[in-house]
Design a protein around this nucleic acid. Structure first.
Lengths: 146, 146
DNA sequence: ACTTTACTTAAAGCCCACTTCAACTTGCAC
DNA sequence: GTGCAAGTTGAAGTGGGCTTTAAGTAAAGT
């Protein structure tokens, strides 16, 4: 018989509060079996899911997006190494995008200070994505990520 | 007389909705003069403030922290190049911290896949029993950049 | 002068990611 | 078999970051 965890144990091992775990379950991010007395019992594999959720959150991904990603895992069987590798490499791509974005931000900020224009609004940091040419320096929308 | 912007103009040029600009004003992030008829008129320098706010938000900083940072600007005069350079370099440090954090995350993720441990929970990626356990309610921002 | 668009306010609403509450039930330790 | 920590539920509350609404005023175009 497979070893299971109570909600308190999973909470302790994952660093996520029990209330958050119940919330995740309502959103369909994790699953739990039940005892005869209706208490949750988590397969140890859920620990990995919770870790994944927390990592994705740190990258700035919403729970809804995380749910969509986790939906890519097989439902019928415990995810294999290959399953997780696929998901994780997808997240590495997201991380790389985000890192590149922040680096661009940092470098542009440096340029703005260095060049003396000082107008954050006048550099490519704020890209005039529309009719800039009314009068004077233009409208500035920040470039959206991905 | 100094050229000013209506709230609609500032909204258009900054890409921030008028309601958000009024909200920022309530929080003390930006300031506005008034016409005889009580309408807001923004000094062009406010455009820079709004840009700064948006950039800081992209880095994952809360409005409260942004307000504290902006409080470092002189109230009596229009901020000089040096004023902005000081603020911006502080933000560059934040950016670097955040970039370093994400890189560590990315590299650890690679390691987890490569080594086959597959247990994200077994690496330093997930720090069980740690301080993140009780952050209180509210949307999770990015981890503190200190 | 008139019409239309833009602005004003306070208060309420919304979305996300949770937490807290109240009232109750399970299940492990002794 | 009893005591008590740990679990259960739905509903309501919290905090951040806004948007929407309603009712009214200002200013710009013709």
């Amino acid at each position: 018989m497979q070893q299971t965890l109570t909600i308190g144990e999973l909470a302790h091992r994952s660093g996520v509060a029990p209330s958050a775990l119940r919330y995740y379950e309502r959103l369909g991010l994790i699953r739990a079996g039940r005892t005869g007395g209706n208490q949750r019992r988590y397969d140890r594999a859920e620990l990995r899911r919770v870790s994944f959720i927390r990592i994705a959150q740190q990258v700035g991904v919403s729970l809804e997006e995380i749910r969509e990603a986790l939906d890519g895992l097989p439902e019928s069987r415990t995810p294999t190494k290959a399953d997780w590798a696929r998901l994780s490499s997808h997240w590495q791509a997201k991380l790389n995008d985000r890192i590149a974005f922040l680096e661009r931000l940092r470098d542009d900020l440096t340029g703005c200070i260095g060049c003396g224009c000082l107008s954050l609004t006048a550099c490519r940091l704020s890209n005039p994505d529309d009719e800039l040419a009314d009068d004077g320096p233009g409208p500035r929308r920040f470039p959206a990520l991905s």
